[in-house]
Design a protein around this nucleic acid. Structure first.
Length: 726
DNA sequence: AGCACGCCGACT
DNA sequence: GTCGGCGTGCTC
């Protein structure tokens, strides 16, 4: 056997290195193969040619099988994988395999859907089958109209495949790749002056290489219409568009809008809800250039697109763009890298841009465009009012004013929304009288209650204190965790509004696939007076006109242990408020709070995003938190917290000498012990220089790996670069 | 991560 | 006497 060529092959294992195999012939980089790996057969991707080097040639085993149903993966794809692996300090093989659809991760052949188009030859066109042969006639008729895929013909005649085979042999039909992307644009909406200015700026950037744009447009300002008209130009030029959206926004209504606008452009959606086969088909359609539009959640950022002309990231501030396990990538950041690689513009759109993106604007890396008016001339911003809960009579957490407003709205025939904030719930202690909260004496974090031990702990620096019996500021004994008392809210609402038709929307009531459709129909049919729900209701779905929005438990996000909580709360409340009064009536938003003077609420009432963003930015700058420093978290978990802490303690000591220009904070117990039976802790690395932090991490990771090998097998660790949740 | 090898407790 | 617990070590 002449196994005379050596290859480097990446395998899906948590090891930093690639492996050397031999093969009878050279294989191009990006070829998918099956290789023997220890006692098993694994899927591998060829990453390049290789020499045996110091390796004993006897240990080098031959490639078992070469999969050639698809061409080798493009170099640009492998480059992005290499970047992501390096930046997030994740093993190359595992990074590569997370970027691939599941079907391509297995060491076996894949079956691709038949996308060939069939059409009649001149001979075939002249010989229509007799009308009595209904199946053949139907197929012929369809082909006489236009070229079709087999999938399109099957509904007309189940035996379409056999018919085509016979006709092919007789020279009556031919098949091949579909014609190049045709382009047709459905009815466009008129743009207002602002939208036109924005579109012109963006259109001017097309075909001009890389540029990054932050499109900051208030809710209802018509960002989507701008995307669509910009996309039209890209698609008309025969290029592809990648659109990334948050998980929750991937609704049939949104896809329908894109599909209706570009009726002849093949559109592919990619998200985690697809079957392996569907996901593979969409991915390959993008890669082979058949799809003009690829629209999907964070995982879609990896789709190879040979004629990429534009990337759009909608709701760029949304946290679902950050993957929270395994390769902890941020799809928005990879999208910007990718736009740079492909030399195309990237548009990041949001009503409430992330502080990260605003800082990038400040630094001159992104350019900002604004939409400050609602697209429909008459639509006004909602009126936001605060209900001071400090001296209010309340029932089950509801102020009498809120109940009264709900009654009034119902009588006026308007639909209301009661929004319960459960996001970022971490029990921070607060005084119900003076507004004192449990701040950490050593850093700018909040102390969190750990009930089993009755302790207050700082999850940032690790400070630990007993729970006080009364307020340290005013002596009031009524101190309790923020956010308590919303559990029985639905029952209370039913009792207080007996004549209103309530509809609760949350994970439980929308568990099954068609649940949401049914609820949605009830809303459309105006069979609902009061919607009650959480996060799910804040974004995405359009309920038509909401007359009133009541927000409960917003305060729990105000004084949170996570320094990003206020940024998220502000974005969330903005979004909820944007649900009110979208049509021609201005809506009303009521927020129940113990801190009516808090700058966040004050800014919300004034609709002053810029002012509050500036305040937050100054706070972050003063505390040297991201985006004014680069951060990475080393997380560890074990059945027992002290094992995780001891592991991080040892590492802190070992890494200190390498940490020039790096601040190491902690270790500290993590905010929430997520998985039952496992406890988590974390060590934070912070630096004013991203490069320096990267360099440090490159040196630190091998040490972490070594320490983990020495530690108990039950200890697990992960590194989170640019963490979103701290 | 898998998977095998290896060395100590309660079962036919 | 053996089945099986999971500690430890390797994968070209």
């Amino acid at each position: 056997m002449a196994n005379d060529v050596y290859l480097q092959v990446a395998v899906d294992v948590p090891l930093r290195e690639t492996f050397t195999y031999c093969c009878e012939r050279p294989l191009p980089t990006g070829t998918r193969v099956a290789v023997p790996f220890g006692p098993r057969r694994a899927c591998g991707i060829v990453t390049g040619p290789s020499a045996p080097g110091g390796l004993d040639p006897a240990r080098i085993r031959p490639v078992l099988e070469i999969f050639d149903e698809l061409p080798p993966l493009p170099v640009s794809f492998l480059e992005m994988v290499a970047f992501a692996a390096a930046y997030y300090h994740h093993p190359y093989g595992q990074t590569l395999f997370t970027a691939l659809p599941t079907a391509l991760r297995q060491p076996g052949n894949v079956r691709l859907p038949d996308r060939r188009h069939w059409w009649l030859t001149p001979a075939g066109r002249e010989t229509p089958p007799p009308a009595a042969h209904r199946a053949r006639r139907a197929v012929w008729q369809a082909l006489a109209d236009e070229a079709c895929t087999l999938a399109a013909l099957r509904p007309l005649a189940p035996q379409a495949s056999a018919i085509l085979k016979a006709w092919l042999a007789e020279g009556r039909v031919a098949s091949g790749e579909p014609a190049a992307l045709s382009f047709r644009e459905g009815p466009v909406l008129a743009l207002n002056g602002e939208q036109q200015t924005v579109l012109q700026a963006l259109a001017g950037a097309l075909a001009q290489g890389f540029s990054a744009w932050l499109l900051h447009g208030i809710t209802g300002s018509g960002k989507t219409e701008v995307y669509l008209q910009l996309m039209a130009r890209v698609l008309a030029a025969g290029q592809q568009v990648l659109v990334l959206i948050p998980e929750i926004n991937l609704t049939p209504q949104l896809i329908e809008r894109f599909a209706a606008r570009f009726p002849d452009t093949p559109l592919v959606t990619l998200h985690s809800g697809l079957s392996d086969g569907e996901r593979l088909a969409g991915w390959v359609d993008g890669w082979q250039g058949r799809a003009g539009i690829v629209i999907g959640t964070r995982l879609a950022v990896f789709t190879p697109l040979p004629r990429l002309g534009l990337i759009v990231v909608d709701e760029e501030h949304d946290t679902s763009f950050k993957q929270q396990e395994g390769l902890r990538y941020h799809a928005r950041d990879l999208a910007v890298w990718r736009a740079h690689q492909a030399a195309v513009p990237v548009v990041l759109g949001s009503a409430t841009p992330s502080l990260e993106s605003l800082a990038n604007v400040e630094a001159g890396r992104y350019r900002r465009l604004r939409l400050t008016q609602r697209a429909h001339g008459a639509a006004r911003l909602p009126e936001v009012q605060l209900i001071d809960m400090r001296r209010k009579k309340r029932t089950e957490g509801l102020a009498e004013e809120s109940v009264e407003a709900l009654r009034t709205a119902q009588r006026a025939g308007q639909m209301s929304l009661v929004f319960i904030n459960r996001r970022g719930y971490a029990p921070v202690l607060a005084c119900t009288d003076c507004g004192w909260t449990s701040g950490c004496p050593h850093c700018s974090s909040k102390l969190v209650i750990h009930l089993p031990e009755r302790r207050l702990r700082c999850h940032h620096c690790g400070w630990d204190a007993p729970v006080p019996g009364s307020c340290p500021d005013c002596g009031n004994v009524d101190i309790r965790p923020l956010g308590e008392g919303t559990q029985r809210l639905e029952a209370a609402l039913t009792a207080m509004l007996p004549e209103a038709r309530l509809l609760r929307i949350d994970r439980d009531t929308t568990r099954r696939k068609d649940d949401w459709d049914q609820l949605y129909q009830r809303i459309q049919a105006e069979e609902v007076d009061v919607l009650v729900g959480t996060q799910m209701l804040a974004k995405g779905h359009d309920f038509g006109s909401l007359g009133l929005v009541v927000v409960l438990n917003a305060d729990s996000g105000l004084y949170s242990a996570d320094f990003r909580a206020t940024e998220r709360l502000f974005a969330l409340l903005n979004q909820v408020a944007g649900r009110a009064g979208r049509a021609d009536t201005p809506g009303r938003v009521l927020i129940q709070t113990q801190w009516p003077d808090h700058p966040l609420y004050q800014a919300l009432c004034r609709h002053d995003f810029d002012g509050y963003a500036r305040t937050l930015a100054e706070e972050r700058q003063a505390a040297r938190f991201p985006p004014y420093c680069s951060q990475a978290l080393l997380r560890a978990d074990a059945p027992d917290l002290k094992d995780a802490m001891a592991f991080l303690d040892r590492l802190r000591e070992a890494l200190e000498p390498l940490a020039e220009g790096i601040e190491i904070v902690g270790p500290a117990p993590a905010l929430m012990t997520r998985l039952a039976g496992r406890e988590r802790a974390q060590l934070s690395f912070e630096s004013c220089s991203r490069q320096r932090l990267q360099h440090f991490l490159s040196e630190a990771v091998p040490q972490v790996e070594a320490a983990a090998r020495r530690a108990s097998r039950s200890l697990r660790w992960s590194l989170d670069v640019d963490p979103q949740e701290t």
